[in-house]
Amino acid sequence: MTDSEGGPELPEGDGPQGATQGDGPLVVVENVNKYFGELHVLKDINLTVDRGEVVVVIGPSGGGKSTLCRSINRLEPIDGGRILVDGQELPEEGKDLARLRADVGMVFQSFNLFAHKTILENVTLGPTKVRKQGKQESEKHALELLDRVGIANQAQKYPAQLSGGQQQRAAIARSLAMRPKVMLFDEPTSALDPEMVNEVLDVMTGLAAEGMTMIVVTHEMGFARRAARKVVFMAEGQIVEENTPDEFFTNARTDRARDFLSKILTH
């Protein structure tokens, strides 16, 4: 965690970067509605994420958590309301949207590393093709990031040769290589074998401690307690409760949340 070059205040002028720019909230979700056909998956969602804040979204499956997460970089277009990232409303599909996505890191449940490229190539691809950064500089930064997530020795391998935990850490490094303003995690540990969950959570906890703005959809209650500043409980497409982790886990305000917690925390 001593990656001084990964910080937000880099000297290179390679694109907008850094959680220190501007001062309003970093992500604003306003009255967002979304339908999958007849199904109303997001119902009037309002959420504000401040700079450096870690928000954990939990709740039962099918409650709209992932959809909300994916709508923040417009992998899912919304049907109503608006979403702002760093004060800018999400543009329509096209070059502007690509530019915005470059500033929003995303980590997927199924890793989605580029299968035909080595780990190192996976991490350098964005910086070279999107940020137009030099190859040497990109590789140096990529190796630092891979070292930081503990898999520098796997740099020349292909994704399929790595364990799930290693792949997910590589995917986090790939996102970090873009020096994102905010990172979205869509159930990053749900596809992992139990013994690999912690190696990924450790990396995420480290990021949170360094002040990265993060929105994390997860079922890992331990991580939520440890790293989150805010817990958002979602069910049936609505935000049912927004609370601090301590309050939420010991003294949830809503019945729906208490019911959910009683089902997952009793064993």
């Binding site: 929003v104 964005g126 995917a171 996102s175």
Partner: peptide
């Protein structure tokens, strides 16, 4: 897999 294209878009590729 669809995830490959999603990951590509998520890092800002057009």
């Amino acid at each position: 897999p669809l995830g490959q294209a999603e990951a590509a878009r998520s890092i800002g590729l057009t």
